[in-house]
Design a protein around this nucleic acid. Structure first.
Lengths: 252, 252
DNA sequence: CGGCTACTTGAAGGATTTCAACGTAGGTGG
DNA sequence: CCACCTACGTTGAAATCCTTCAAGTAGCCG
């Protein structure tokens, strides 16, 4: 059982956007009340099959990916604590992508009626969830820009910086260091490259002293240079708070 | 001024998902009441500047794109009638991408408070809008799969099939033919290729008899072969209706 | 008719892939 | 406790898809 006295990563994330009332907080806490421990490799969704319940990651990593008919794979995003998988699953009969845990993880599952409940009775929360969805879309758009228009080195640098920033937002990265439980093959499927080339590109970033790798730990040594090579700007991560005007319109 | 007796593309799109009440319809009609004609090349959003009002495309095409600091460009999506640009603009201070009309277009602009209104007073509509956002995300995920894991020919075939399908949904494509007001350079920026290679790939699809091009009109000649080369499956376009259970939960 | 933009085609070059081989670490069973 | 096995990482060399450079054509508009 989880200690609900500590705010969950999801709540921390939503609070970046809006101030939550006591009632809203307790509704969210009820949602996340029943948590479950699952081992690495657990399938949270399978492309082509019906979606299960909505899943919130509380601890650990997962990946979301699409598979082409001949087996080629594209990882579209990584889910870290606070991220939601299949929020609008109810609206779809069949999943258009898969999701699998990369590490041992702790997850909470929403009952199917929670989403309609959310929209009917908690409009402010609904906006916060919609905002979170918009952020996911922005992350995907940035990934499209990487895949379409950035070189291998730029893509890799960009990915590392994005993850570092996102992990910082949920207090999972100190300084310039984070645990990255992903194989080079998975990085390749994220960046649209071959494993071999990921290996070489990683080697080059390391040789240039931009990063350091110690097992699963990535250490960004020269943030400015790395940001420059990646052309990284965290604007699309929606780090900023919601404009005041909207806040007040919502509360009134 | 627009004839509101005919259902707008946006309404038609939302009705694919949910049945709208008379009140909801009239609220939507009020939103789209004031339409505006703009020429091709009109900027609907500019990356790095503050978002303007929410824009709904009623007629014509627009494109959404990201620009890297050195000018490289990635077109992330095309907006066709019924599509919304910057729905969550209020939640952001600065636009993370640009949007420009590709043709002469007719657009409607929402007042900023419309979105909060939507969530507070029209939960069923809010879900429909959220679903529409989820669809956009799915389209982006599919684009990531194309950019990352498909060859030039597969990407191009996939793009054409996606647009055909989407245009059919708003009655803008008869049979296997549609108007595609996009230059080869823009196609290149969509598919992450060079203009030269787009030209050659287009030529090859034509030589193989899969498509025919007459000015801005694309004619898909052999749908099965084209679908096969693209590995196309319209699942991600959310063509299907919402499961019954959710419908009833929403209406009750 | 000049000038612009879009499209087309050839040839050379380059970023990345593929193929192949080897090293290493952790896990399992004899 | 060692042998084996599998997954992951690493490196070299050849092949390829795609880009870049270059030049030329076609259509459109003032």
């Amino acid at each position: 059982m989880s200690k609900t006295s500590v705010k969950s990563p999801l709540i921390r994330k939503l609070e970046i956007l809006v101030r939550l009332s006591g009632e809203e907080l307790s509704w969210l806490n009820r949602l996340e009340a029943t948590t479950r421990r699952v081992p690495a490799g657990t399938e949270l969704a399978v492309q082509g099959e019906t979606f299960g319940p909505v899943v919130v990651v509380r601890r650990g990593w997962a990946m979301r990916f699409k598979t082409l008919s001949d087996g080629r794979r594209q990882i579209t995003n990584y889910a870290i604590p606070g991220d939601i998988i299949g929020l609008y699953a109810n609206l779809l009969e069949v999943a258009d992508h898969s999701a699998v845990t990369l590490t041992e993880a702790e997850i909470a599952e929403f009952p199917p009626e929670a989403v309609t409940d959310l929209f009917r009775h908690h409009p402010k929360l609904a906006i916060a969830f919609a905002w979170s969805g918009a952020r996911e879309e922005a992350v995907l758009a940035e990934k499209a820009a990487s895949l379409g228009r950035r070189t291998a080195q730029e893509r890799l640098a960009h990915l590392l910086l994005e993850l570092l920033r996102r992990l910082q937002m949920v207090q999972m990265a100190q300084d310039d260091r984070f645990v990255f439980p992903v194989t080079q093959e998975q990085i390749a499927d994220t960046l649209g490259l071959s494993t071999v080339h990921v290996n070489r590109t990683l080697g080059r970033l390391r040789a240039d002293g931009l990063i350091e790798i110690d097992g699963p730990v990535i250490h960004v040594r020269r943030m400015p240079e790395l940001s420059a090579t990646a052309d990284f700007d965290d604007l699309y991560l929606y780090v900023r708070r919601m404009p005041k005007g909207v806040q007040s319109r919502l509360s009134s």
